[in-house]
Structure formats: C-alpha cells, structure tokens
Simulated scan of single mutants.
Amino acid sequence: MKIAFAGTPEFAAQALRALIEAGHEVVLVLTQPDRPAGRGMKLTPSPVKVVALEHGIAVDQPEKLRTEEQQAALRAAAPEVLVVAAYGIILPQAVLDIPTHGCLNIHASLLPRWRGAAPIHRAIEAGDAETGITIMQMDAGLDTGDMLLKRAMPIRADATTASLHDALAALGGEMIVEALAALPDGLTRTPQPEEGVTYAHKIDKAESRIDWRRPAIELDRAVRAFNPFPGAVAELGGTTLKLWAAAPCDRQGAPGEVLQADAEGLVIACGEGALKITTAQKPGKKRQPVGDVLQGLELVPGMVCDLP
C-alpha cells in the first residue's frame, strides 16, 4: 500500500521499520521537529526521522498540522492510508480526510482504557494485570475512534515502563502490518464501549516524588511506572536520589523510617509495609546498586526520611 507515516519516538520507529520490512511503499514520514537533547543540548532528530532517512524516505516536520501550508506535503503525497503512532501532534479533521482509507492509530492500551498520552505508565501505576495494543480508525476525538484490532498482553510483576514499552512496540509493529493486509474490506470496525473509559494523562515530573505515607505496593508500582522517565525521586539523608529498582516487603515502621541500610538493600517503612530499594542514583552519577549509593550518605536504621 501507498502509506504515509506519522510518529516520533522509538515506539513509532519500530512500527515504521515493520512497515518497511513488510514491503509497503512509505511515501512520506511526518515527525516532530528536531529537539535539543543531551548535555550539549544539540538539535537531535527523532528516532522516526532517523529510520526514514536511513531508507531514503521523504520527511516533513511541521510544528502543527492546522494550516494548508502545514498540510501541503501530506496532500501532495496522496497516501492511501496514514499510519499514526505516538506522533504527539493532534490531527484535525482536514488531515484525517486526506488518505483514501483514513488514518490508523497504533495505541498502546486496550481501549477504551487509558486513552491519552501515557498509557504504558498509567497501566503499571494502576496495577493493571494486562494491557495491549489497539489498532484504531482515527476520528477527531482523543483516542475515541472505532477499533479494528485489539490484542492483550499480561503485565509482569516486575515490568517497568521501559520493558513494557519494548514489548508493546514489537506487538504494535506486527499488528499494523496485519491490519493493512486486511484493508480495505477485511476488518470489522467496532465502536468503543462507553463503559471503562479512563484517561492516561501526560506524566508530570511532580508526580514522581515518593510519599512514604502511601502503601509500599503503590510505591513499587510508581518506581516501575516512572522508569525510565522521569524516575521516582526521594529525599534521603539530605540527598535527592532517583529510585530505579525496588520491591515491597513485609516490615513495619513509621512512614519514612529507615529499617535497613546496607549492601543488601535500603528498606524504608511506608504507610503499609515497607519498600526495599536495590538500585538508585545520586545526582550526576550513574545508576548503581544501593550498597554503593549508600556510601557517603548518613542513613542508619531509626532515621526518618523527609516526607513531601
């Protein structure tokens, strides 16, 4: 099929690779403008742009798609279908109407649960037992279009946003190839049910601060949900640490009380139970086993950490 593709991060790049490998003619790639990144804040292309350029595909990077000028490249490409994955730019109805078969979205949740910007984070944070990929026929709403394909995947007890992202990205690539093979008449459009709608709001860095008054099981999910971005943050012994690996354990104390601080782990009491931290990061340092992180920190059993 003659395809245009719109996406930005690695999740979308995997889908683009799958389409190219399946032999589809990708006539245009839309992706967000290059952004400053890294210590030098050098302008850096998106993962989707990198894949497109590697395969000699034309790239357009409008800030928005509201005006005729911003839509001109897509109109000139005249695609049969536009595949969208984590693009980050809202598509107005005028854009949705350009492709012959409309726009198909690869969404990383089992719609209608977790519509919106951060479905992978929110599924882990909420303690969902499963998630998956929904291939959706886009309309002008926020992830409200008819469903074409849906496939579930269990969320492992140790899953992080990073690990679940990779598994879902691979599944999304497989499913969009399957969906396109069935167009135009081989897919049933199923309207989303009104029951079960939830919204995966964009991650705010302020959410990542650990509150020891919460149950340990919730904090464990928060640590995993915010890995790799933005990283769960806690004030421990006067130092701001990012927590990268932890697990709830059956110990008790006042919220924020240090119960153990050694090479085996840093155990801090929570509102219910306790959290055993095994990997953390000091400012300006790399992720390390907690025994190495504790060196130079005055954390001893009986101390009470700061509460937000």
Rank of each mutant, 00 (worst) to 15 (best):
E194A: 14
G172F: 05
C305P: 00
L148Y: 10
A280D: 01
V233F: 02
V233R: 07
A140P: 01
G253D: 06
E257H: 02
D204L: 11
T134M: 02
P215N: 00
G145L: 09
A123H: 07
A234T: 03
Q252R: 14
W114A: 10
D262H: 05
A123R: 06
C249K: 13
T134I: 08
Q14N: 04
Q252K: 14
W212M: 08
R224N: 13
Q260E: 11
R213A: 09
L219C: 06
I277F: 02
I268K: 00
I90P: 05
R122M: 12
K202D: 05
E54S: 15
V83W: 06
G88L: 09
T161N: 02
A37Q: 12
A22I: 09
P283D: 01
I106C: 09
E174T: 15
K282R: 15
Q137A: 15
V223M: 08
A170Q: 11
A94E: 09
A129G: 15
A52I: 10
A86Q: 05
L91A: 03
A78L: 13
L187G: 06
P193V: 01
K286H: 11
G296I: 09
R213D: 02
T188V: 15
T190R: 09
A15F: 01
R122Q: 14
P33A: 08
K282A: 13
V300A: 01
K242F: 08
K242H: 10
T100G: 01
L43G: 06
H55C: 13
F11G: 03
G186W: 09
Q260G: 04
G291H: 08
M147C: 13
A162V: 02
Y199D: 08
K276W: 01
V258P: 00
G172S: 04
R214Q: 11
V26T: 14
L180R: 05
R287T: 07
D143H: 10
G56T: 09
M303I: 05
K2M: 12
E54F: 10
V48P: 01
M147K: 07
E272D: 15
P119Y: 05
G296K: 05
T279P: 00
R113H: 14
A94T: 11
W244G: 11
H121L: 11
A254M: 07
T161Y: 04
A77K: 12
H24T: 12
K2S: 14
E10P: 01
D185S: 14
A58H: 05
T239G: 06
L171C: 07
P154M: 08
A13Q: 06
R221E: 07
I20V: 13
C249V: 15
D204R: 09
S46E: 12
W244I: 10
P308D: 00
T188Q: 13
A85N: 15
H201V: 10
A152M: 01
E257P: 08
P99Q: 07
F226I: 02
A157Y: 03
A200K: 12
T31E: 08
L91V: 04
T239F: 07
E54L: 13
L142S: 03
L219T: 07
M41Q: 14
G237I: 01
G7K: 04
T240A: 12
E125M: 15
A12P: 04
K202S: 11
L183F: 14
A179F: 09
P112F: 10
P154D: 06
L91H: 01
D204Y: 02
A254C: 03
Q288T: 03
L180Y: 03
A232K: 04
A245W: 05
D211F: 00
D185W: 06
